[in-house]
């Protein structure tokens, strides 16, 4: 079995994995990183979005072996030094979650979105999050949260992985 080295939320893991093992199952079943959930099996919903070497990736669509040598940040690693990431705070402040199942992926996708466009319009936010589905909120408050997160982050610089 291939041996991989992958850093997840600041910890270096060395794992022997089947070549077919999905990154999300490595995270959830092997490393206990259950903060990243699985919402579909076709790469549509985005619930499993993580940062892979600084960019968002749907961890159900990445093989664990492809992540060899990579740095992965999950929702569990987004807060630093006891401080929530501004995007996490923004989702709370704007009531941008209800059941919360899509939230980890949505937050990671939102953080990534701001890397390309630190001050996105509402339309750009909606387009940018098209690959992350939410069934509870109707997205209005998610858009507000991303806008708020962007404002917070512009004040202190983009701080992600």
């Amino acid at each position: 079995m291939p041996r991989i080295t992958v850093t997840v939320d600041g910890i270096v893991y060395e794992e022997e994995v089947e070549p077919r093992l999905l990154l999300v199952h490595l995270l959830r079943d092997r490393l206990g990183k259950t903060g990243t959930p699985v919402g579909c099996d076709t790469g549509n919903c985005g619930a499993c979005t993580v940062m892979l070497d600084g960019r968002s990736a749907k961890s159900c669509s990445v093989l664990a072996v492809q992540a060899d040598g990579s740095d992965v940040v999950t929702i569990e690693g987004l807060a630093r030094n006891g401080r929530l990431h501004p995007m996490q705070e923004a989702f709370h402040a704007e009531h941008a979650l209800q059941c919360g199942y899509c939230t980890p992926g949505m937050i990671m996708a939102a953080v990534d979105l701001l890397k390309d466009d630190p001050d996105p319009s509402d339309e750009a936010i909606r387009r940018g999050l098209e690959g992350n589905l939410c069934r509870c909120t109707g997205y209005c408050n998610i858009v507000r949260a991303v806008r708020r997160g962007a404002q917070e982050m512009s004040g202190e610089g983009v701080r992600t992985s």
Binding site: T34, I75, E76, Q88, G100, Y101
Partner: peptide, 21 residues
Amino acid sequence: RRRKEDARLITGRTLWTDDIQ
């Protein structure tokens, strides 16, 4: 009121059924 539930949901510290081992 901002929700009490959010703290675990925005940090990935929820317990969904599939998380149970």
